[in-house]
Design a protein around this nucleic acid. Structure first.
Length: 559
RNA sequence: GCGCUCGUAGCUCAGCGGAUAGAGCAACGGACUUCUAAUCCGUCGGUCGCAGGUUCGAAUCCUGCCGGGCGCGCCA
């Protein structure tokens, strides 16, 4: 259901007739009515300037004209308000019918897209030499929610987990593993050796060369280390409720045999410039510290390849071989310049035609309560597993069932990540994210659980909606707003708008719950309220599912 | 220095050119013979960083400052 679109469609002919030209109906939700249109306001100026129209009409007169010409029959009522707004009030019976339909519709009034796109979502992408840390949380959680939303809308979504499995850090851990016969959890130790021991550092560098040259022993160790971390990652994804699978791993190593060809193709197109021994592309519009052109280095002076080349190879593969229509890179904001340059070079090289959208879905950092980068007391980055453990332990205080505690704890962390504008930084705060009131995971899960409890007790009933109490009306109207939110999020990838909507829906439900007894209501009213519960439960359930958050049937210690 | 980004209530944040800028937390005051009170209702709290500009209308768009974060040639 999309009342905004329906109302706009009714308004459009009247506005066009009044203005003599098509006008944006500008229909929005409003605190003064269900919806409002501000379209008459700018029209007043045009009218006043009309050649012979002495004085012209004021915005209120114009709004009245539009209302007189518009046909709202069977949908809404309209009235002029304030300086010239058109307040629109949807008829109760229309809202009721819409909710009735929603309650019985698996898709909750959201139709699959008419033209599915092939969307490739590049997310999570941890360095396979290390453990997962909170640093990987945002890309993983945001990317997976984006995948879920796009997929549910009917798009052909391809997940890509661009694992760091080839760089210097792998040289370090392979060298360390071979020397000390230890193959698990060696990154920290290897890093220390690399930073403090010149001889080790040299060996690690040689090890990268051996790896890239295909040395059998090196490759064997590499393969074992990689398999081990992949297994660990998959376990973490499972625990997080992230849909990435083994089939989605597409690490840097996968593009190694394409790097020469990337450089060759850039050369063919005359984009390559030798500079200080390196091969570079200088896309237009990028300036460096000294004001000079900023290079994207595609081959280092030592002949090796860096991440820029790998990113270009991956992009080319995704548009030419995988035929993606839209590329999403869910990567931290600090890399925005890098991606802008990669996209610019890819365009120049013809790998990114105008028909394909490439977007850097950037996000900010997770901060500690001191406002600085979130780290453990020892200054290390915090392991993801430890964060999840603590969240679950905290949730377990109120939830005896381990499965429910896990759903609440993990859900709280994910929701905290998704409920704010992804571009901004956010402060990691246990108490806030696990609070049972406010815009939190637990609050939404609680609302969902209460609904399930009612529905369970109610048993079968004949759906139908009659709007009575203000709380019923407010809830019903909120339910009808799901569709525009979802379609908007698929476009903007602002998951926090979905989160905000769900919070607002849950809050409307809580008010309804307080003011409108369901099970004890009179016949007729009872069925209507149960239908509202059903529609709300389904919407909350689907919305949270799209965010990747579980919805237990029951919360608490039981009974 | 250049670029990107952020600056909204004491705190954490919404606010996608429209009316009197909204939530939660905190503070204070109410509501449990009632479907989970893990909730709800109310009160208090704001020169939307500053100054200009565009507009009938600006927290929102533009410009310039101030302040924080990040980035700026062989790490990813």
């Amino acid at each position: 259901m999309n009342f905004e679109a329906l109302l706009a469609a009714r308004l459009q002919p009247a506005l066009a007739a009044t203005a003599g030209t098509p006008v944006d109906p500008a229909v929005r939700r409003s605190p003064h009515a269900d919806y409002q249109s501000g379209a008459a306001l700018p029209l007043a100026r045009t009218s006043a300037k009309a050649p012979n129209g002495k004085g012209g009409k004021g915005p209120r007169d114009i709004a009245a004209d539009v209302i007189a010409k518009a046909d709202f029959v069977g949908l809404a009522t309209a009235e002029v308000s304030g300086p010239g707004f058109i307040n629109l009030t949807v008829q109760d019976d229309v809202i009721a019918a819409a909710v009735r339909e929603l309650a019985g519709d698996e898709r909750l009034g959201v139709a699959p897209v008419a033209k599915p796109q092939r969307v490739l979502v590049d997310y999570s992408a941890p360095n396979a030499a290390k453990e997962l840390t909170v640093g990987h949380l945002r890309s993983t959680v945001i990317g997976d929610a984006a995948v879920r939303v796009l997929e549910w809308l009917g798009h052909d979504v391809m997940r890509a987990n661009h694992l760091g499995d080839w760089g210097t850090s792998f040289g370090m851990i392979i060298e360390y593993a071979i020397r000390f016969g230890q193959e698990h959890d060696v990154y920290r130790a290897a890093r220390i050796a690399f930073d403090t021991d010149d001889e080790f550092r040299e060996s690690a560098r040689r090890r990268v060369v051996l790896l890239q040259a295909g040395d059998p022993e090196t490759r064997a160790v590499w393969r074992r280390l990689l398999d081990r971390t992949k297994t660990d990652f998959l376990a973490a994804y499972e625990r997080l409720g992230v849909t990435l699978t083994a089939a989605d791993f597409a690490g840097e190593s996968a593009y190694q045999d394409q790097l020469d060809s990337v450089v060759a193709e850039l050369d063919d197109k005359g984009l390559l410039v030798a500079s200080d021994g390196a091969l570079c592309v200088f896309p237009a519009g990028f300036r460096g510290r000294d004001g000079g052109p900023l290079p994207l280095i595609v081959r280092k002076s030592d002949g090796g390849y860096g991440y820029a080349t790998t990113d270009l190879a991956a992009l080319r593969h995704r548009t030419t071989e995988l035929r993606a229509d839209r590329l999403l890179y869910v990567v931290g904001a600090p890399q925005s310049t890098h991606f802008a340059m990669v996209f610019a070079v890819a365009q120049d090289a013809g790998w990114l035609p105008g028909t394909v959208r490439a977007e850097h879905v950037a996000f900010g950092s997770i901060l500690g309560e001191d406002g600085r980068m979130f780290r453990s007391r020892s200054g290390d980055s915090v392991k993801l597993a430890e964060v999840l453990d603590e969240a679950v332990a905290r949730a377990a205080v109120r939830n005896g069932d381990p499965a429910i505690a896990a759903a609440v704890g993990v859900g709280a962390i994910k929701y905290a990540d998704l409920s704010g504008d992804r571009r901004g930084n956010y402060v990691f705060d246990w108490d806030r994210m696990l609070a049972q009131i406010g815009n939190t995971g637990p609050y939404l899960q609680y609302a969902y659980a209460r609904i399930q409890s009612i529905l369970h007790r109610a048993g079968d009933f004949a759906p139908g909606v009659v709007i009575g109490e203000p709380a019923e009306r407010a809830l019903a109207l909120e339910l009808c707003a799901f569709e525009p939110v979802i379609t908007g999020v698929a476009e903007s990838l602002d998951l926090h708008r979905l989160a905000g909507y769900l919070y607002s829906l849950a809050a409307s439900f809580s008010t309804f719950y307080e003011h409108c007894p369901v099970l004890k209501a009179a016949a007729g009213v009872r069925e209507s309220r149960l239908t509202l519960c059903l529609a709300t439960g389904r919407t909350l359930g689907k919305g949270l599912d799209l965010l990747g958050i579980q919805t237990p049937q029951r919360l608490g210690s039981g009974s």
